[in-house]
Structure formats: structure tokens, C-alpha cells
């Protein structure tokens, strides 16, 4: 008896470099940068590491996602903060184009606020707006879902 292979129910995971273009939006899977999750006394972290906090992605009052390498070891730092590596845990999708505002209106109820951690297409996402390009840092295991969602949302007939 042929057993249903559940992997056939789900769309496959896109590779780095995959591109989607529809409804005035270009979506790209790009190489996710090295990054570290830092919680605690963020000012102390900034002093010790030399990282400018305005370049990091603030997630909560006492939490930020720092892109790029630092010399600091993971774990607790006596100055009052903790650091963990997330470099392999996140995937990055970049969105750009004239249709971006309409897509964002479909994807999230969040308005602009101090936290970059929002719910986008139903999953937790960390936003990184660089000029006209919106980066979405998501848990790597959900990349296939987000990619399919973007395809459907961009391909539904517009009004």
C-alpha cells in the first residue's frame, strides 16, 4: 500500500538566491548574516563590545539582535548582559518594490513602533528596514512557509 509521504504536502524550501516577483514586489532569499542575541543591560553591552546600538535590531526593552560578528563569548557577562549565537538559526528574506506597502498591509497589523519584533504573515519576524529594502529575519525552519505565503499573497487577484 502506498503510504502518503507528508513531505509532498508541503512546498519545498527555497535556496539562497531564490527570487519571487509579483504585484510590484521583489522578494529574495539572501544569505543570513552572523548575528547574536543580547539581553540585559544593553548600554553595558554597547560599552564593552563597541557596537553602536542604533545599528542593532531592538526587540524589547532589554533585548536586541546584533548583526555581524563580535568578539564576545556566548553566556553571561559580569557587566550585566547575556549573549547567545543565533547565526545559523535565522533565514533572511529581502523585499523591495513599489508594491511593498500593500504587501506589508496584508502581512501585519503592526504599526511602526520601537520594537523590530512583529508578527508578519502569522509568524514572529524581526524587521530590518534598510532604505527601500525591508529585511525579514525569521526562524530558519519557517522559511518555506514564509516563501509560500509571499507567493500566495502577491499572486491573489488585486482589486
Amino acid at each position: 500500500m502506498l503510504e502518503l509521504n507528508h513531505v509532498d504536502k508541503w512546498a519545498s524550501q527555497p535556496e539562497v538566491g531564490a527570487i519571487l516577483q509579483a504585484a510590484g514586489v521583489t522578494a529574495r532569499v539572501v544569505d543570513a548574516p552572523e548575528c547574536r542575541l543580547v539581553s540585559g543591560d544593553l548600554a553595558a553591552f554597547s560599552r564593552v563590545s563597541g557596537v553602536d546600538l542604533s545599528t542593532a535590531l531592538r526587540l524589547a526593552r532589554d533585548r536586541t539582535l546584533v548583526l555581524g560578528r563580535t568578539e564576545l563569548a556566548p553566556g553571561w557577562h559580569a557587566e550585566g548582559f547575556a549573549l547567545s549565537d543565533l547565526s545559523a538559526g535565522l533565514a533572511l528574506v529581502e523585499l523591495s518594490g513599489t508594491g511593498l506597502a500593500d504587501l506589508v498591509a496584508k502581512a501585519t497589523t503592526a504599526d511602526s513602533g520601537p520594537s523590530k519584533a512583529i508578527t508578519f504573515a502569522g509568524i514572529p519576524v524581526v524587521l530590518d528596514l534598510k532604505g527601500e529594502t525591508l529585511g525579514l529575519h525569521i526562524e530558519r525552519g519557517l522559511l518555506a512557509y514564509l516563501w509560500s505565503w509571499l507567493a500566495s499573497a502577491l499572486q491573489e487577484p488585486s482589486r
Binding site: 542575541l37 539581553s39 532589554d62 550585566g80 547567545s84 547565526s87 545559523a88 538559526g89 530558519r140
Partner: peptide, 12 residues
């Protein structure tokens, strides 16, 4: 300020 929770499941 003395305990934090970091979910690193996806990293490994």
C-alpha cells in the same frame, strides 16, 4: 536584570 531566556533551538 539577572536572568535571561534565549531560545537558540533553531541555531543548532
Amino acid at each position: 536584570s539577572r536572568v535571561v531566556i534565549h531560545d537558540t533551538t533553531a541555531n543548532y
